[in-house]
Amino acid sequence: MTAARGRPSLTERRRQETRLEIAETAAALFAHRGYEATTVEDIATAAGISLRTFYRYCAAKEDALTPVVTSGVGVLVRELATRPAEEPLTRAVRAAFDASVSARRLADPEQVRRLVRIMGTVPALRMRWLAAGRDMQDQLVPVLAARKGVPEDSMEVRLLACALLDAFGVALEHWAGQDEPGDLAELTLRAVRYLHLDAL
């Protein structure tokens, strides 16, 4: 049976689910033990998979987290694409962000904060985070271009996608670095409002 247009096949959905399970397992171990103290064998054992299966999905230990980094943005992009075209962009982003937050599966705030700090300080993970950010921009550009009625290859829409994702990243890192971090959603929306998206 073929997948409906725009919808991943059952096989691909299972692959995505396995990637996310590996990523969540790695995230929990990195947050609890630290990156250096966690081995690929530890991740595979905790995830209930073989080393061969791990390497089928991840080329190296530092690649394991990518689905955790990108999954929230994937939800945000899909939600933003469904918002009414006439809705102000700031309001549309807020609604899409709320939906992406509710869909996230790493529920322990302290674990998430530790993980973000690790990702910001381990060079190999930082590089993967930056690379994932470029891929996420590529997902976001078509949606923003359609809302703005401009070509996808315009400099302005790429700048807008970059600014929006950077706002998310800065808010996340700020939240993770605070002794009393407050509410991540409110911090992120404050960062988005600072961009004055509706004036762009």
Rank of each mutant, 00 (worst) to 15 (best):
residue 96 A to I: 02
residue 64 A to T: 03
residue 50 S to L: 10
residue 88 P to E: 05
residue 109 P to S: 13
residue 36 E to Q: 14
residue 23 A to E: 02
residue 67 P to A: 09
residue 46 A to H: 07
residue 70 T to E: 15
residue 86 E to Q: 08
residue 28 A to K: 08
residue 75 V to S: 10
residue 103 A to L: 13
residue 12 E to A: 06
residue 21 E to H: 13
residue 29 L to Y: 02
residue 62 E to S: 12
residue 75 V to D: 13
residue 50 S to V: 15
residue 24 E to F: 01
residue 96 A to W: 04
residue 41 E to Y: 10
residue 16 Q to Y: 00
residue 109 P to C: 15
residue 49 I to D: 00
residue 34 G to S: 09
residue 39 T to M: 08
residue 93 V to Y: 03
residue 85 A to Q: 10
residue 62 E to V: 02
residue 71 S to L: 09
residue 47 A to S: 09
residue 78 R to D: 12
residue 76 L to N: 07
residue 95 A to L: 11
residue 48 G to D: 03
residue 79 E to Y: 07
residue 46 A to C: 04
residue 91 R to W: 00
residue 30 F to C: 03
residue 52 R to S: 04
residue 21 E to T: 15
residue 16 Q to H: 07
residue 31 A to C: 07
residue 57 Y to T: 04
residue 97 F to A: 15
residue 56 R to A: 11
residue 61 K to S: 13
residue 47 A to M: 11
residue 51 L to V: 08
residue 101 V to D: 03
residue 35 Y to R: 12
residue 39 T to L: 11
residue 31 A to M: 04
residue 14 R to P: 00
residue 27 A to F: 00
residue 44 A to I: 05
residue 102 S to Y: 06
residue 47 A to V: 10
residue 43 I to E: 01
residue 51 L to T: 07
residue 64 A to Y: 01
residue 49 I to P: 00
residue 94 R to F: 14
residue 12 E to T: 00
residue 25 T to S: 09
residue 104 R to Y: 02
residue 29 L to C: 02
residue 85 A to I: 07
residue 98 D to A: 14
residue 73 V to Y: 04
residue 45 T to D: 09
residue 35 Y to T: 10
residue 42 D to P: 02
residue 79 E to D: 11
residue 80 L to K: 04
residue 7 R to F: 02
residue 80 L to P: 01
residue 103 A to Y: 01
residue 49 I to S: 07
residue 28 A to R: 09
residue 84 P to A: 11
residue 90 T to A: 12
residue 78 R to K: 12
residue 82 T to R: 14
residue 105 R to N: 08
residue 20 L to W: 00
residue 15 R to S: 09
residue 71 S to N: 13
residue 30 F to L: 04
residue 87 E to P: 10
residue 16 Q to I: 08
residue 42 D to K: 09
residue 79 E to S: 15
residue 74 G to H: 04
residue 59 A to N: 05
residue 36 E to M: 11
residue 69 V to M: 15
residue 48 G to C: 08
residue 46 A to D: 01
residue 65 L to F: 01
residue 24 E to T: 00
residue 69 V to R: 15
residue 37 A to V: 05
residue 29 L to H: 06
residue 51 L to K: 15
residue 106 L to W: 01
residue 106 L to H: 02
residue 8 P to N: 02
residue 43 I to K: 14
residue 62 E to D: 11
residue 69 V to W: 02
residue 103 A to Q: 10
residue 19 R to I: 05
residue 71 S to Q: 12
residue 94 R to Y: 08
residue 40 V to S: 00
residue 12 E to H: 02
